[in-house]
C-alpha cells in the first residue's frame, strides 16, 4: 500500500505521550502501593486493614485512579506491541475491541471493589 501522509493526528503521538505520563504517575503510586501492602503481611492481607484505609474518600479516589491508569497503561502497552506486527485488519479490529472490553470490564470490577466500602 502506498504511503500517504494523513497529518499527525492519527500518528499515535498522543498515545505515546499519555503512555509516558501515565507511566510517570504509576511510578509514584506503585512505590506507595508496595510500601502500604507489603511492608508487613498484615497490611495488605487483612480485611480490617483494607476497611480502615478505604474509609478515607481521598484514598478511594487514589485507588480508582490507580486502577484506571494501570489498566490504561497496560492495555495501551499491549496494543503498542501488537501494532509492531503486521496483521490483517479484521484481526486488528478484533484485538482492539477485546482490549477495550477488558479495560472497561476489569475497570468496572476494580472500581466496584473500591466503592464497595
Amino acid at each position: 500500500m502506498e504511503y500517504k501522509y494523513m497529518g499527525s493526528r492519527g500518528s499515535g503521538s498522543m498515545s505515546w505521550f499519555l503512555q509516558r505520563i501515565s507511566g510517570i504517575v504509576l511510578v509514584f503510586v506503585i512505590v506507595g502501593h508496595f510500601i502500604l501492602m507489603h511492608y508487613n503481611p498484615e497490611m495488605g492481607h487483612s480485611f480490617d486493614r483494607v476497611y480502615e484505609r478505604m474509609q478515607n474518600p481521598y484514598y478511594q479516589m487514589l485507588q480508582i485512579a490507580f486502577v484506571v491508569l494501570a489498566l490504561y497503561h497496560g492495555l495501551q502497552g499491549v496494543w503498542n506491541i501488537y501494532r509492531d506486527f503486521k496483521f490483517p485488519s479484521w484481526l486488528n479490529l478484533t484485538v482492539f475491541s477485546l482490549l477495550i472490553v477488558l479495560g472497561v470490564g476489569f475497570g468496572a470490577l476494580g472500581i466496584a471493589n473500591i466503592l464497595h466500602f
Binding site: 486502577v67 476489569f106 470490577l109 476494580g110 466496584a112 471493589n113 466500602f117
Partner: peptide
C-alpha cells in the same frame, strides 16, 4: 489481581 480482590465484596 483485580479479579482476586473481588473477594473484598
Amino acid at each position: 489481581h483485580i479479579n482476586t480482590l473481588a473477594s473484598l465484596q
